[in-house]
Amino acid sequence: MSEAPRSMETVQKLKFYQKGTHTVGNRLISEAERNVQASIERSNSLTCGHRACQGCGEALGARYAIDAAMRAANNQLIAVNATGCLEVFTTPYPETSWQMPWLHSLFGNAAAVATGVAAAMRVTGKPQVRTVAQGGDGGTTDIGFGCLSGMFERNDDVLYICYDNEGYMNTGVQRSSATPPAARTATTPTLGTEPGNVFGTGKFVPKIAVAHDIPYVATASVADLHDLEAKVTRAMSFQGARYIHINVPCPLGWGASSGDTIKLARLAIETGLFPVFEAEHGRITQVRKIRKRAPVTDYLKLQKRYAHLFKGGVPDPRVARIQAMADRNIADYGLVEA
């Protein structure tokens, strides 16, 4: 968790802030102890005028993560970006939304380019300049996966951040290996007896990253800023390969209201569909518990990509299968307070 609770204990002897425990800021604690995002001084690494859709979870997640990394690295940070929404909406030539050194090469090689940047900083005697690589789920779990695994096994000094919006969104919402079962995409249409994406495919890269025994792996969400910033800060305290996988809802691809982005991210956590945890050197060290458990239907019904599950008033048996996936996460990761 963030720094806040510690100061509360010392100053107030009270571990309770009604209006600051979950909000972005907290006027009752000192400026230095607040979230980066609460500060007027935040770096706004990803600034205004970008062309992300209204309510874009990825634009939000990227600013959250990179601003926190910037603070941790004293603004000595270079970002390497895979092809994807984030690259497209921030850098339509000749404009850029990045207020930091930023590179883009190919769809699949962000991790490899970042390895090179980190090596260049090392050999040119600038070890204080840190490197992040970032990409969407397509550039990470599909196309760039080989380079990513290589970066992990070599333990290169790079923090790789994946913004997972569960599909290839800027090219017209195609399925990726992070697209969940039953979700409708352009390539998994709502046709046939089992419309939408099939069950039993895809992969959860954070688990694969943990299997590399790298120093730090975490999942995070735009719905829990305190947790996200703490994880980025923690990741930046390590040398070597680090991986953070952030759940970023996509109003366009998920068929959701632009104002529901954070609510959806929150429900993904509270249903158990998206487990939030961190692991160090191959072992899970911390799990974010569910605060107000919700059934998966609360999450699914807000998204048109799942609308076919609720057609005709007859409950689709696949809703129960999705619930079973959530229940399994809850059991596997221990997401509910015993």
């Binding site: 009604q18 209006k19 600051g20 909000t23 972005v24 800021g25 907290n26 006027r27 607040r34 979230n35 995002q37 609460a38 706004n44 990803l46 600034t47 205004c48 970008h50 992300a52 309510g55 874009c56 979870g57 634009a59 939000l60 600013r63 800023l225 982005t261 954070i262």
Partner: peptide, 21 residues
Amino acid sequence: RCLSCGNCFECDNCYGVCPDN
């Protein structure tokens, strides 16, 4: 425990959650 219903208490949520700064 007061919720500050209806009046901004400067929690920074709007400032934080805006994807467009």
